[in-house]
């Protein structure tokens, strides 16, 4: 019976096996534990302390969390950031994933020419730094330059133009769409790869059964790549609730106008490092990070226990 794990360890002297494991796993586990897991745990521990102006720290239990969620001075910006983050995520789910799926579906059409060219071009923005992308769009959408308004005028929609990034009502959605523009390549590629994995014979069989491309896509391909779509969604969730670079580079730490684009990442940064309006507060910063950790954890659990269990994986 072929097994994925070798049985070679069964005959190995224990000391030899221990030596091998130490050699192979030691460096990775050490670096990972020291610089990834330990800081996470230490940050959570720090969130239960507070410090006085002299720098001394006192254990305060869950008081920081009470402040964060109960004191209006803290809870208002927190819930504002959380709400904005939800909108940020919702825009990604409703725009990025459908576009990604549609592009992947088009790219996987049999006999499509220039496939490689399209893939390369469409994935390009994903490779760039968020900072650069944010700033470039900032310029393009700026009324000063007039590229966007000019483009709209050219198609007769000039009256629709507004300084979207500057308006409280539209800044957040505009930033979300810039992020979507940049990262649409990831769902596109992952779903494209999943579509390629569907055996061609299955598609041929459906064509023999008289289904057209549209029906094949909706009734055969889409259900088969559902696990990938749900994986993409959870990746998007984690990335969105951890986002920072885009807002920070376009709008600065204050996430203006009037905190309209503030999300948890920028809120965390401000709390931790401080800004023009307040001093940095590492312990409250830790509390914010801990809350973000639990939000992400909650999302992951929902995915693992509700979504992933229901989504059936098919073996080909």
């Amino acid at each position: 019976m072929p097994e994925s794990v070798s049985n070679i360890t069964a005959q190995m002297p224990r000391a030899k096996l221990a030596g091998l494991l130490l050699f192979f796993l030691g460096p990775a586990v050490a670096i990972y534990t020291l610089f990834s897991i330990y800081p996470l745990v230490a940050t959570m521990a720090l969130s239960t302390y507070t410090s006085d102006p002299s720098g001394a720290r006192y254990f305060v239990g869950l008081a920081n969390f009470e402040t964060l969620l109960g004191d209006a001075l803290w809870s208002k910006p927190f819930w504002n950031a959380f709400g904005n983050n939800l909108i940020f995520f919702a825009v990604h789910m409703c725009v990025q994933n459908p576009i990604g799926i549609a592009l992947a579906g088009l790219l996987s059409l049999p006999g499509l020419r220039l496939k490689g060219f399209y893939r390369t071009v469409m994935f390009l923005p994903t490779m760039l730094s968020v900072v650069i992308v944010g700033f470039s769009w900032n310029l393009i959408l700026s009324p000063l330059w007039g590229v966007a308004s000019g483009a709209l005028k050219a198609v007769g929609l000039g009256s629709l133009f507004a300084p979207w990034l500057g308006l409280e009502s539209s800044a957040l959605v505009t930033l979300s769409l810039i992020s979507v523009w940049q990262f649409v390549g990831i769902p596109m590629m992952l779903i494209y790869a999943a579509l390629l994995n569907i055996p061609e014979e299955l598609i041929d069989a459906a064509r023999v059964d008289g289904l057209g491309h549209f029906r094949i896509f909706f009734h055969i391909k889409l259900p088969l790549v559902l696990p990938t779509i749900s994986l993409v969604s959870v990746l998007t969730f984690v990335a969105n609730f951890n986002a920072f670079d885009l807002i920070y580079s376009v709008k600065g730490a204050l996430a203006g106008p009037n905190f309209a684009t503030d999300i948890l990442g920028t809120f965390f940064y401000r709390t931790f490092f401080g800004n023009q309006l307040q001093l940095g507060n590492p312990t409250m910063g830790s509390a914010v990070a801990t809350v973000m950790f639990f939000i992400i954890l909650l999302g992951l659990c929902l995915y693992l226990f509700l979504v992933q269990r229901r989504v059936r994986r098919y073996a080909f």
């Binding site: 610089f35 990834s36 330990y38 800081p39 996470l40 745990v41 230490a42 940050t43 720090l46 959870v234 984690v238 951890n242 920072f244 990442g265 931790f272 590492p282 910063g285 830790s286 990070a289 801990t290 973000m292 950790f293 992400i296 954890l297 992951l300």
Partner: peptide
């Protein structure tokens, strides 16, 4: 799944 960024304070 858990971004290392959340440990920034301790890092």
């Amino acid at each position: 799944m858990v971004p290392i960024r959340l440990g920034s304070v301790a890092i």
